[in-house]
Simulated assay, not measured.
Amino acid sequence: MYRLQSIRKCYGSNVALDIEELTIVRGRLYTLTGANGAGKSTLLSLLAFLAPPTSGEIFYAGKRVDWNHGSVEGYRRKVTLLHQSPYLFGGSVHDNVAFGLKVRGIRGEERRWRIDEALEAVGLQGFRDRMSRELSGGEAQRVAMARALALNPEVLLLDEPLANIDRETSGLLETVIASLPAQGTTVVMTTHDPDHPGRRNGESIHLEGGRNVLQSLR
Rank of each mutant, 00 (worst) to 15 (best):
Y2K: 13
A150N: 02
S204E: 09
T31A: 10
L50P: 09
G137W: 06
E134C: 07
R130F: 13
M189V: 15
K9R: 12
S92E: 03
A61D: 12
T33A: 04
G62T: 01
T190H: 07
F49K: 07
A146G: 05
N96R: 07
T190W: 12
S216W: 04
I106T: 12
C10Q: 10
L81T: 00
S85E: 08
L151M: 15
I106K: 06
T169I: 10
G27H: 01
R26S: 12
P86R: 15
Y2T: 08
R26N: 04
R128W: 11
Y11F: 15
L151H: 05
L214W: 09
L162A: 00
T42W: 11
L124G: 13
T185Y: 14
G56W: 07
V143M: 11
L124P: 13
F99R: 04
G70E: 01
A35M: 06
E73V: 02
A178L: 08
A144R: 05
N96A: 05
G37C: 02
L29T: 00
G123V: 13
R112Y: 10
F99H: 07
S179L: 11
L101K: 07
A35Q: 06
T186Y: 02
R167I: 11
D18Y: 06
I165G: 02
L207W: 10
S136C: 09
N212G: 04
D116K: 10
G91Q: 01
R133E: 13
R142L: 06
A98V: 04
D166R: 03
L4F: 15
L157S: 00
T191R: 05
T33H: 02
N212H: 06
T191V: 11
D159K: 01
R28M: 05
E174P: 10
G56E: 13
T185E: 11
A98R: 12
R26V: 01
K9P: 09
C10F: 10
I58D: 12
E154C: 02
T186V: 06
V72Y: 02
T33K: 01
L151E: 08
S132H: 07
Q183Y: 05
V143Y: 08
E20N: 11
G70T: 00
V97I: 13
R114S: 01
I115E: 05
S216F: 03
T33L: 11
G70M: 00
E73C: 00
G198C: 13
R111P: 03
G126Q: 15
G105L: 00
R142P: 06
R77Q: 04
S6H: 14
E73H: 00
S85M: 06
